[in-house]
Amino acid sequence: MTSLFGIGKRQDAPVDFVLDPAAEELDQSRRNLLRGLGLAGIATAAGALGLVAYRDEAQAATADGTSGQEHQWCRVVDLRACKGERKCVAACQTRHGLPPEQTWMRTLSWHDDAGKEFFMPVMCQMCQDPPCLKVCPVSATIKTEQGVILVDQDQCIGSRACMAACPYEARYFNWNAPAPTNKMPEQSPNTSEFPSNQIGTVGKCVLCADRIPYSSDLPACVEACPRGAHFIGDLVTDVAVNGQSTVKLSTFLREGNAVRFKEELGTNPRCYYIPGNGQPVGGPLEGVR
């Protein structure tokens, strides 16, 4: 149904990674769109050529959330634990072979009036209503069935509309040749889940999606944080881990008064921040190692 990935490529992927059923609905919506014009001939022709698709968050919302979706991945960043060591950033740069100026994860820092420094790692927030997906003219940004936003580097034409649209400044462009492809410690299969960066295309955090379902390895940033500030979680099974401890996601978010970044923009991000930098880590985790 979809030519977003080469079929062979997908079979090579070592994980149960499936495209959003919304992508399958593209065909349907495309047909509806054209049928609505009352131009059956054009609809047949265009449908056969796969010319036109309407991609935005509406499709994802109409997908049946309960059927066939085993996991819905999310992130939790416990700002109480973050001390700005930026080991997550370094691990990400290394794993994806990124040049210094291209950081898929940034750790912001600022000082309060008393001179105390605060930190906040920011990366792709895995919005469920992603502004970047809507504006892509060539449908290169994709949302998977499990809620991960990825870029098909083989389809990207480098219009950078997504960079304009992202409110989290989480997208980066491969401006210069040679693209930083070959510095990676492991060979990139050049899939959307683990892209090899190509010149003239856009890159961003992929949530180390090649490691889904994270049963043997966690995302590089999660593994790298010595303080356990980064969590990878699953909304369906209601579990999150930071490589050191395991939490019940809903309880953890509730008790930590978790917030989402720029909630007012309606992007519906899947990254939760637990505020309160400087507070001791405590609560229900006591005794669990």
Partner: peptide, 25 residues
Amino acid sequence: HLGRPDRLVGMVIHANVASPVFWDM
């Protein structure tokens, strides 16, 4: 303006109708 003008045909064969850039074209 495009990073990959060699893939411009994608504007037609993978067109995203929701994108303002598509309607620019």
